[in-house]
């Protein structure tokens, strides 16, 4: 399925993601990583540790509503995969980011911005694994 090339919107979105990462470090001293925030939300070390993560997740999930209020339309979320693929994929992502210690936001943006060797390695590996997987799924299996 074709999608429209959106360089300006994507770049602008990236700038906002980066702005959130900078604010998180400047105010809280924390890496803005979705994996770390979720993991700490599931198994918090204290009530205050849980509450800031809950507030941040609530803010993230308010994104679509605010975009709708500003632009009048809900951003496009098209899921071109089957339900079993969402379940298997989601489970593998959960296993992988926990052992790998981060995902696209934590390793890919924040860690790479600090020139962390571990984050650069992680990002190269998950990007390559994703390219290979999409090739296999789309062109060899043909889903």
């Amino acid at each position: 399925m074709e999608t429209t090339f959106t360089p300006y919107l994507s770049f602008g979105g990236g700038l906002l993601i980066g702005t959130a990462a900078i604010l998180s470090m400047a105010l809280l001293g924390r890496i803005m990583g979705a994996t770390g925030i979720l993991a700490g939300f599931l198994t918090p070390s204290s009530m205050s540790d849980w509450s800031w993560r809950a507030a941040m997740i609530a803010g993230m999930a308010s994104g679509p509503l605010v975009v709708m209020l500003l632009t009048g339309s809900v951003p496009d979320v098209t899921v071109p995969v089957t339900l079993p693929m969402l379940v298997v994929g989601g489970f593998l992502v959960g296993i992988g980011v926990t052992f790998g210690g981060g995902c696209t936001s934590g390793h890919g943006v924040c860690g790479m911005a600090r020139m962390s060797v571990r984050s650069i390695a992680a990002t190269v590996i998950f990007m390559l694994a994703c390219f290979a997987t999409v090739y296999v799924v789309r062109h060899l299996v043909g889903v």
Binding site: V88, G89, L92, G96, F99, G100, F126, A129
Partner: peptide
């Protein structure tokens, strides 16, 4: 872990 994440993300 990162490799498994990449596979799941691609799926």
């Amino acid at each position: 872990g990162s490799a498994v994440f990449g596979v799941g993300w691609g799926i």
